[in-house]
Amino acid sequence: MGGVKTTTKQKIAFSVLFLCTLIVVLPVLFVLWAILKGGAPAINWQFLSTMPREGMREGGIYPAIIGTIYLVSLSVLFSLPIGLFAAIYLNEYAKDNLLTRLIRLAIVNLSGVSSVVYGLFGLALFVNFLKFGVSILSGALTLAIMNLPVIIIASTEALASVPFSFREVSLSLGASRWQTVRYSVLPNAIPGILTGAILSLARAAGETAPILFTVAAFYLPKLPKSIFDQAMALPYHLYIISTQIPNIKTEVRYGTALVLIGIVFSMNIFAVVIRAKFRKKKKW
C-alpha cells in the first residue's frame, strides 16, 4: 500500500534527521561533562580570587580572570560604536553601488578570517607601528578589529529587520533621515544589535591567537595598573598550564577551562535572554 510506504519513508527521514542532530549535540555535551567532572573539584573561592603560586601549580587564576574581563570590556568600547555606526551607514545611507557591495562582501569575508591573522595584524599595527607595546590596549584593539565584522553584520541585520514602513511614516511626518534612524529605526533594532555584540564578545573572551602576541603574559606577579600594562588572560593561561608547565594537577587545568567556559556560556545565555524578551514584546 502506498500509504504505508509513505509513513515508513517519513519515519526513516525523521530518524536520519534526529541522528544528525544527535551527532551535533553529543560531542558538545561530552566535552562539557568531561570539563565539569574534571574541573568542579578545583573551583572554590580561593581558586577564583588569589594569585597563582609555585610556578602556577598552586593558588588561583585571579589575574587571568581579571585580564580577560579588562580585555573584553575595553574591546567592546571600541568595536560596538564603530561597528554600529558603520552598520547604520551601510544600511540606512549608503547607495547600492559597486563600492558598497564590495565593502559588504569584504566585511562578510573578514568575519571568516582566522583569528591568528588578526593577532599578527595587531602585532604589526598596534604593538610595533603605533608603539602601544605588548599591552591591554593593543590586545583590546586587536580583539575589537576581529569583532568588527561580526558586529557590523549583526547590526545590519537588526536594522534591516525594522519594517520599511517605519522609515516611510517617519519621513512623511517631516522627520529628517537622521531623526528617522535615531528615533524610529534604532530603538527597534537595539535588542538585535546587543545580542550580536554580546555573542561576538563571548567569542573574543575565548580567543587565544589574537592576544598571544599583543597582550598576554606568561606570568605576572601583580595585576595590571593601566591599559599600557601586559595582562594575563584565561585562554592563554589555559594554554600555558596545559603545555608549558609539567607536573601540574589536572584539576587546575580543568578548573581553568571550566571558568573560561562558564564566562562564555553565561554571556551567550544573557544574549539569548535579551532576544527572547524582545521577541515577546515585538508585535509588528
Partner: peptide, 26 residues
C-alpha cells in the same frame, strides 16, 4: 507641509500618546 496617510495602518509600536508626540519631538 504635505502629510500622508498610508494604505495599511502603520502606527509605531509605541503608546498612542507617543505616536503623536513623535511628530512634535522631531
Amino acid at each position: 507641509r504635505v502629510g500622508m496617510v498610508f494604505q495599511k495602518p502603520n502606527p509605531f509600536p509605541k503608546s498612542i500618546y507617543d505616536n503623536i508626540a513623535y511628530c512634535l519631538k522631531v
